[in-house]
Computed example of a mutant assay.
Amino acid sequence: MKPGTFLRIHRWIALAFAPLLLIQALTGTMILFREPLAQTLDPGAMTRQSSHDMQPAPLSQLLEAAGARFPTMRVTRLFMPSGPDAAAFAQLTGAQGEVRYASIDPGNARVLAAGPIWRFPIEAALQIHYRLLGDWLGIAIVTLNGLALFLIGVSGVKHWWPGRGRIVASLKVRRNLPSRIKLRLYHRSAGAIASILILFSATTGVLLAAADLPLGPAPASAAPARTITLSSGQVDNAISLLHARLPEARMRDIRIGPDGTLAINLLAPEAGPRAVDVVQIDATGPSLDKVLKSDDNPALWLTVLPLHAGDSFGLPGRLLLMAEALALIFLCISGPLQWWRARSSRPGAKK
Score class of each variant (00 low, 15 high):
T229H: 13
G317F: 01
D311I: 03
F313I: 08
G191C: 04
V111A: 03
G156Q: 07
L78Q: 01
K351H: 13
L199D: 02
D289K: 14
R343W: 13
V142Q: 04
V111W: 00
W339P: 00
S189R: 10
A218K: 15
R74M: 09
L302G: 12
A309K: 12
T40C: 01
S60P: 05
R110H: 14
L137I: 14
L22M: 11
A249M: 10
L302A: 09
F6M: 15
C332R: 00
R255D: 12
A18K: 04
L266G: 03
G310W: 02
T47A: 11
D311G: 04
L41P: 02
L208G: 01
R131T: 06
W161P: 06
N297L: 06
K2C: 04
A275P: 04
S51A: 12
G314F: 05
V173S: 08
I122T: 07
L326W: 04
R69T: 15
M54C: 07
E98Q: 15
T93Q: 14
E35Q: 14
E35I: 13
A114R: 02
P84Y: 09
N145W: 00
I239C: 05
F17S: 07
L328K: 02
A211M: 07
R164T: 12
G146K: 02
T229M: 12
T72C: 02
W12N: 10
P19D: 12
K350G: 09
D53F: 08
A113L: 03
W118G: 08
D212T: 14
H187A: 04
P19L: 08
A88S: 15
E98V: 09
L22K: 03
R166H: 15
L22F: 13
S232F: 07
P219S: 10
